[in-house]
Design a protein around this nucleic acid. Sequence first.
DNA 1: GCGTAGACCCGACTGG
DNA 2: CGAACTCGGGTCTACA
Length: 305
Amino acid sequence: MPELPEVEVVRSGLAPALVDATVSAVTVHDARALTRHPGSVDDFEQSLRGAHVVAVCRRGKFLWMPFTPAGGSNAARAVVAHLGMSGQMLLRFSGAPVERHERIRLDIDHPHHGALAVVFADQRTFGSLALDPLLPTTDAAPGGFGADEATVPAQVAHIARDPLDPALDETRLRRLWARKRSAIKRVLLDQTVISGIGNIYADEALWGARIHPETPADALSARHVTRLLAEIRAVLDKALAEGGTSFDAQYVNVNGQAGYFAHSLHAYGRTGAPCHRCGRPIARVSFMNRSSHFCPSCQRMPRTR
DNA sequence: GCGTAGACCCGACTGG
DNA sequence: CGAACTCGGGTCTACA
């Protein structure tokens, strides 16, 4: 469930069940899901058993759950979750059968919802869970969506704030974009500049702003940048409202349900189909070892450099 | 030249 | 044979 809207769907689905819950058991089916955990599998299981979950937070495509350890006092660490290309967080009843591609299961007890299972399933294993220390944010603002505390996990510290974060530093963002000679699409995908945008929403936002994906970022006018930022926010908001983009059963919410935004796409995956603005066919080019979709007629490169 | 920062490629997987 | 909503480490280049 990879980009910001899909990850936010997961965050908001997990929060009611996980905030205030206590972890009763941890089952690691596949140690590859812990490649980003600094300690051993045993350390992961033992540190988490009996832990009390304080919040479910998100910045860009990263999720984290601050917790107080069994018998502990304050939340100094968090479970960091990244879904990679195919990760899912599923909420199941206690004792539910092992899911296809299930990598890790957390059994939890919630004061209102009772016993539940949180299942991390991941076909391609690019996703992971990890325990990570919480560090203060450099701007003293809350670490991300769903966070009250001004902290982020160490693994998330280098990730920029996302377009839906009120603490996003737009001045810094404009300055960074103005300095980059790389193609704007590449820059949109750089999570240290602005986070949460992946291949789908980069193509969609550039289509909406009528900007060619290979336009050098520093060639964009202030007006282009304003339009692009507005399109980014609009497409992410709309995708979130529609439950995210689901092409297949891979991208689902915590209850296994797909989102509807795939029906609203204008560029991504529409190779050869008529542009919804001008009717000319959407082009697909290979770019950075992945696909870029755009309208060659509506999205022109600027004439000057 | 050295050291550093930025840019970019590629591998890490499963499976339609 | 290799589509695919990911990330970061290694490596190369450019420059002070």
